[in-house]
Structures are given as structure tokens and as C-alpha cells.
């Protein structure tokens, strides 16, 4: 972009310095966490940041002595199903708002939008009673069913579906294509990027659930990883920092990898949803 004008050397050094400084502050909690996960707890509690016994033994302890792998598996199951069904339900309702004409559509859409104003956190009390009466407590289903759809997802996909050339619908109607086929054959493939974005978003949102699972799960067989870490931390009466940091690392490394791979979709999709 600025081929002709090279900024003066001092400015370049300033830029690099700023970059390094910012990177340092972002990285320091990671680095400390990972580093201490390699140290023996005895050395950490003395306040030492260096040890002659660097090893992966904290990881071994975390995997063998705690249900951390089970927690990860639970989270994976919960997040995966929430994501899959959310994609289906949100895309269906978004389709209805764009391609099906019916009385009161706009009103209904505004009602959908209005739910974005209602935080789930403010409704946990009756929702707890509902899932208890449905017999869902302490089960995967309790962490999936209330989140099968989302107003945000519907809104985002609606914006994406509106980008689909109307001529396509006209043509398909002349061809006698049913809503189902148009939805499955045209609309979904056309909005792949937005669907991927919503998938990533809903997967992460489900993965990060904290309050709801804490209230509705009571055993390690169903407890997701966020509450699992809380559990590990509260059981620890000795400051076993090495093991705790290792568990945190076990949890964060897979998500970091997934994120760096899926970064591109996430970014472009979210911007689309944001701007239009």
C-alpha cells in the first residue's frame, strides 16, 4: 500500500517495540501457566520459578488421578450436539423468516429478536424447575435442550439468507421445488460460510457454559470441563499448582489448536454477521 514512503527507522523500531510489548502482555499468563505445569509443586509453593526437575509428571498425575479426560469428553459431546441441532433449528427458522410468507411474520421476527435482550442468567430459577420436572437433571440432555436454538443464530443466518439472489427462489418456484428442497439444496449450501461461523460460535458458547452445568450436574460422568476444573480446584486443599496448571493446559491446548485452524472462517463470518 505504501510502497514509496518507507517510514523512518525510529518509527519502525517503535512499531516493533509496541508489537513485542503487546504480545508479551497477552502471552504472559499462558507462558506462566504452561511453565509452572512442568515444575514440581513443591518448588512452586516455595515461589521458585526454576527447578531442576522439569517433567511432564503433573500431566501424568492430572490424567491418571483426576477425571479431566472424562470432563473433556463430556464437553465435546455436549458442545457437538448443541452446535449441530442449533445449526438445524436456526437455519430452519431463518429460512422461514426469509422465504416463507405468512401472517404476522414481522411481529414474530421482532419477538425472536427481543429474546436476545433476555439473558439466560436471569431465568435460571424457573428453568431449573422445568428441567427438574422433565427429569433431565444430571444428564447430557440438560445442557443441550435449553440451547437447541438461539435468537442470535437465527438473526445471523437470516442476514445471510437475505443475500441469496431472489431469482433463485423465483426459478425454483417455477420448477416446482418445495420449501424443503430449496432449503436443503440451495439455501444451506449457498450460506456455507455463515453456517460454519455459527457452528464455531455455538460450539464455543456451549464449551464455555459455566453457571448452568454447575447447577444441573451432580456427577463426574456428565460434568463438562469448565465445571470440572472448578471441581478440581475446590478439591485441592494443598496448593497443588503444578497439577492444576497441567489440567488447565490439557483443557486449553485442544481449543487453541481448533481455533487457529478455524480462525479464518470465524473471522470473516462474524464480520459479515456484524456489519450487514
Amino acid at each position: 500500500m505504501n510502497k514509496n514512503i518507507t517510514p523512518p527507522i525510529t518509527q519502525r523500531i517503535g512499531q516493533i517495540f509496541l508489537l513485542l510489548l503487546l504480545a508479551f502482555f497477552i502471552l504472559i499468563p499462558f507462558l506462566l501457566g504452561f511453565w509452572t505445569s512442568l515444575l514440581p509443586t513443591a518448588d512452586i509453593s516455595k515461589g521458585a520459578l526454576w527447578s531442576s526437575h522439569i517433567s511432564l509428571s503433573n500431566y501424568y498425575t492430572a490424567i491418571t488421578q483426576t477425571p479431566i479426560i472424562r470432563y473433556l469428553f463430556n464437553s465435546l459431546v455436549i458442545s457437538f450436539f448443541t452446535m449441530a441441532v442449533q445449526l438445524l433449528f436456526c437455519s430452519m427458522s431463518a429460512y422461514a423468516f426469509v422465504f416463507i410468507e405468512f401472517k404476522g411474520r414481522d411481529t414474530l421476527f421482532y419477538i425472536f429478536l427481543a429474546t436476545m435482550m433476555l439473558p439466560f442468567e436471569a431465568e435460571v430459577i424457573p428453568n431449573f424447575v422445568t428441567v427438574r420436572n422433565m427429569g433431565l437433571l444430571n444428564h447430557y440432555a440438560v445442557m443441550i435442550i435449553p440451547f437447541l436454538t438461539s435468537a442470535f443464530g437465527t438473526f445471523m443466518l437470516r442476514q445471510a439468507f437475505m443475500q441469496i439472489p431472489k431469482e433463485l427462489r423465483e426459478a425454483s418456484e417455477i420448477e416446482g421445488l418445495s420449501h424443503w428442497r430449496f432449503y436443503a439444496k440451495v439455501v444451506l449450501p449457498y450460506s456455507r460460510i455463515s453456517l460454519f461461523t455459527l457452528a464455531a460460535y455455538s460450539f464455543l458458547a456451549s464449551w464455555n457454559q459455566y453457571l448452568w452445568p454447575m447447577l444441573t450436574t451432580f456427577s463426574d460422568s456428565f460434568r463438562p470441563v469448565q465445571d470440572g476444573l472448578r471441581q478440581l480446584q475446590s478439591q485441592e486443599t494443598f496448593n497443588n499448582w503444578g497439577m492444576i496448571q497441567a489440567s488447565a493446559a490439557i483443557v486449553v491446548i485442544p481449543t487453541l489448536i481448533v481455533l487457529f485452524i478455524g480462525q479464518h472462517y470465524f473471522k470473516s463470518g462474524l464480520n459479515e454477521g456484524a456489519v450487514k
Binding site: A84, Y140, L168, L177, A184, K185, P189
Partner: peptide, 25 residues
């Protein structure tokens, strides 16, 4: 244009989900 898109993988994904969900529960 309509026919050129294939949505089968997506449908397939949903199917797998449902099967998995039922077996897991």
C-alpha cells in the same frame, strides 16, 4: 445453479448426530 450445490454432506452430518445422540443416551 441449483443443482450444482450438493447438500448431502450436511444432511449426513445431522443424521450422524441424531444416531450418536440416541446411542449415547
Amino acid at each position: 445453479k441449483i443443482n450444482s450445490y450438493n447438500s448431502r454432506p450436511l444432511l449426513f452430518l445431522f443424521l450422524i448426530c441424531i444416531v450418536l445422540l440416541t446411542t449415547l443416551t
